[in-house]
Simulated assay, not measured.
Amino acid sequence: MTRIGAYLRLMRPANIVTAIADIMMGYAASGALLSLAIWESGTFSVSEFSPLFWLILSTIGLYGGGVVFNDVFDADLDRVERPERPIPSGRATVGGASLLGGVLLAGGIVAAWQVSLLSALLALAVAVCALVYDWKGKHHPVLGPINMGSCRGGNLLLGMSAVPAAVEQFWYLALIPIVYIAAITMVSRGEVHGGNIQALKGAVLLYALVILAIISLALLPQFNVLYSIPFLLLFGYLIFPPLFKAMPTKEPRLVIKAVKAGVLALIVMNASLAAGFAGWEYGLLVLLLLPVSVYIARSFAVT
């Protein structure tokens, strides 16, 4: 691996694609698509999508910076448990990674500022949550998963901030990724030494809760659950089998596969929500990020 490749690996490119799906889903929930002239006149203008583009750039910086600092704070531990990672292997340095992470986080906040002050404040909140998790949060058995989930919830709200009023109206949608990411974080703690059966069972319950929560959005006049159902079926197919397979053995190898499946399935979860708010066509557009993420995951680690 080249030095540039090592720093790219620190950013977890495949995971960044899942963060873009968060933004696209939040953008759909904001109702921004309904106000675009393209739907009214059939014309297309790139400038109409500028808030979405800026917010995507923002999440690339925020997520990339957050996971880079994860390896910075874990450098000593990784020398024992993950010596193949870029920093302990010597292909990247703590100083270089810290500089990269700082630039990415700052860039994410600046990009969000191009949309609105609210977007910038949300980006700042996501950056702080990420740093707190990397520093101390990950070591707390209860608050750690919630802390990690809050980063994703904040990212969804960031996408929604394209229409600031939507954040106040639909803020509770952030609870869905918070619960889902909390479940993945619980499972991921068994990547090195093997899974905890209680954590794996708890993840099954939380996954089911997420699916029920999405279906319950049918109560909203803005959400068409019929468009969401096909995506939810695919979502369940992707997340449950790897988890059930890891339960009997609790082998680290199978736990890693369950975590990887959960992370990549974030795109499908977002697609199900996006379809409900903006139609199956837009949901399919979000879903197309999945093969992109899977392809990148062949070259770069997800966990």
Rank of each mutant, 00 (worst) to 15 (best):
L232S: 02
I214L: 10
V263F: 06
Q198F: 13
L200A: 11
I178H: 00
Q198A: 14
L232W: 01
S150Y: 04
P241H: 10
W171R: 06
P241F: 05
G153C: 10
L175M: 15
H193R: 14
G236S: 13
L209P: 10
A203N: 12
I181F: 02
G153A: 06
V192T: 15
A174E: 01
G262Q: 05
K257T: 04
S188L: 04
P164R: 01
R189L: 05
L156Y: 02
A183F: 00
L226T: 14
V179G: 06
A258H: 04
L206R: 02
L238C: 10
S228E: 08
S150D: 09
V255K: 01
I178Q: 02
L158E: 01
L206N: 04
L157P: 02
E191M: 11
V192M: 13
A261L: 10
Y227Q: 14
L266M: 14
L156K: 00
A203W: 02
M160P: 03
F244D: 05
G149N: 03
R253I: 11
T185H: 02
V263E: 11
M160N: 06
L219I: 14
A203G: 11
A265F: 05
G195W: 07
L243Q: 04
P177G: 01
G159R: 01
V225K: 01
L205I: 14
K260C: 06
L219C: 12
K201G: 15
A162R: 00
G202W: 07
R253L: 12
V225D: 13
M247W: 00
I239D: 04
Y237K: 13
L217E: 07
M148N: 04
N224L: 12
G159H: 00
K201M: 13
L243M: 08
A218I: 10
M186K: 07
G202M: 11
F170V: 07
T185D: 05
P221M: 12
S150H: 02
F170E: 07
M186P: 02
P252I: 03
G194W: 10
G236H: 08
V255S: 01
L238G: 05
W171M: 13
A162W: 00
L220K: 08
K250Q: 15
S161Y: 03
V259T: 09
Y207R: 07
L219H: 12
A246K: 00
F223A: 04
P241T: 06
I181K: 03
V204R: 15
V187C: 08
A203V: 12
K260P: 03
S188C: 11
R189D: 03
G262N: 04
L234V: 14
I267D: 08
A246P: 03
S150F: 11
Y180T: 08
V167K: 07
L173A: 00
N147K: 08
A258I: 11
V263L: 09
G202H: 07
P221A: 13
A162I: 02
A183E: 04
F231P: 00
A203C: 12
Y180Q: 10
L209W: 06
M160H: 05
A199G: 05
W171H: 11
I267G: 08
I178N: 01
G195Q: 08
M247L: 11
L226V: 15
L232A: 09
P242F: 06
L173F: 08
L219M: 15
Y172W: 13
P241K: 12
L233Y: 11
R253Q: 13
C151T: 12
K260V: 15
V163C: 05
V163Q: 06
G194T: 08
M160K: 03
L157M: 12
I239V: 14
Y227F: 15
M247H: 04
Y207M: 12
